[in-house]
Write a protein that binds this DNA or RNA. Structure first.
Lengths: 243, 243
DNA sequence: ACAAAAGTGTTTTCAGTACACCCATGC
DNA sequence: GCATGGGTGTACTGAAAACACTTTTGT
């Protein structure tokens, strides 16, 4: 097939033959504050679901962005920081009834992402949000759209990814101690992995963490500090305490 | 928020304010034929990528379907059977440049699915395909769009899901012998798990398989037959031989 | 001295690995 | 008998679980 051949059919191509979908992204931005897993929610200042708490997100800009690009852009707009951490596509939600705008002839499909971050600055409400705040995942209020479902899926994804990847290191600021890293697992799983076994598992997995020279101080004995290693997958997995 | 309140803003909602996306599904339909993992491909009879082999798929019907619904419908159209097996959403591809129709002003986002099936009837070419056939995954030709990438992602998903779920049972017809089930792992991983260890792992996992009364005959000793159990997750996972 | 956090051993238990061996059937 | 596929046994190894214990700091 030649480039010239492509151009020919493109001239005749009728884009309007296909009814329009809107493509949006929804973000589950997780962090750990006060040793508890928290998620960023915004209170909607516009219809639909005006007044409801919901996941931050927005429209993918047509012709210029992928859903991933849009997620990074929205993350920046919502949290005020240039995103550099891990961004995980969870899944896409496209049920026609999931967004009330179907009644106006618009079917909205949304690509959900999970983002993990070390503790972030307190966010400030943007243009399209009446309020923004971190919520402990156990205390989230009723959410608009199908965001309760999306959040549940994202949470399960994060929990299980901790088991077989080095994802937990995305929640801590470098350099970090093994105690800090263990707190991540404790917060996400709701139960603390055994201290000794945890240390052995992390240190015996090549590339999970790499030692950093410095030592910090807190209340007790200074800890050896580490940075993130190159390893992504854990083989075998670190199993959560109660299966 | 009242229903009455919703109706009010909907009247003023301008759906055309958002540029149109097309939403499609791409299907990686896997089966095992001749003890080899195979995938269904179609040869495109229309632009774009006319003449290229590609994954089957098509447009989500606006206002009437979710991507999952569309996947089931396309599966039926492509393979001629009412789908009852497992359908796994892999991820969504939305890079503006992934589909040449962006030059005609249409950005096409595609939700990819992986479907697993026991051996299916030989497919016949449908209206929008010049040819249809099964391809061993090691021998697939050059593909149109970004389908090589999609297929690679789906393959990796299937391979890893065999490790920690009972997904393999979706590839065999009930009732099945453990030898048949083991062939699934062999085909997907490219290496045979140890016979004895495999049997022990499967039989010791509650709900992986349940014994069926009948016994079959082939060339050798008749095998105990099984049906799929209720278990979905394997804890701990069954690891593939070479990491 | 004592609290707090880091870090080390040790014993038990269990699961994965590798491989050898026995069973039932058709030809 | 022997090929074919089904099925069992066992010794070796290594990692996970549970828990006790020691070390180094701040106050």
């Amino acid at each position: 097939m030649s480039r010239r051949g492509e151009a020919a059919w493109l001239k005749d191509y009728d884009a309007s033959a296909y009814p329009p979908f809107a493509l949006t992204v929804d973000l589950c931005i997780f962090t750990i504050r006060d040793d508890v897993l928290q998620v960023l929610l915004v209170r909607r200042s516009d219809h639909p679901y005006k007044g409801f708490w919901a996941l931050p997100g927005g429209h993918v800009e047509h012709g210029r962005e992928s859903a991933e690009d849009a997620a990074v852009r929205e993350l920046c707009e919502e949290t005020g920081i240039a995103w550099e951490g891990h961004l995980e596509q969870v899944r896409t939600y496209s049920d026609p009834q999931r967004d009330p705008r179907i009644k106006a002839g618009l079917q909205v499909a949304s690509v959900a992402f999970a983002a993990l971050a070390p503790s972030l600055p307190e966010p400030s409400a943007g243009s399209d949000a009446a309020d923004v705040r971190w919520w402990p995942v156990a205390e989230v209020p009723e959410l608009g759209y199908d965001h309760a479902r999306i959040l549940a899926d994202a949470l399960e994804r994060v929990r299980s990814k901790l088991e077989y990847t080095s994802l937990a290191t995305q929640f801590v600021e470098e350099p970090f101690s093994l105690g800090e890293l263990r707190k991540v697992y404790t917060a996400v799983w709701g139960e603390a992995p055994d201290l000794g076994n945890f240390r052995r598992k992390v240190l015996s997995t090549p590339g999970f963490v790499v030692a950093a020279a410095a030592r910090g101080e807190s209340g007790g004995r200074p800890a050896q500090l580490y940075r993130r290693g190159e390893a992504v997958l854990l083989h075998p997995a670190m199993l959560r305490p109660s299966g």
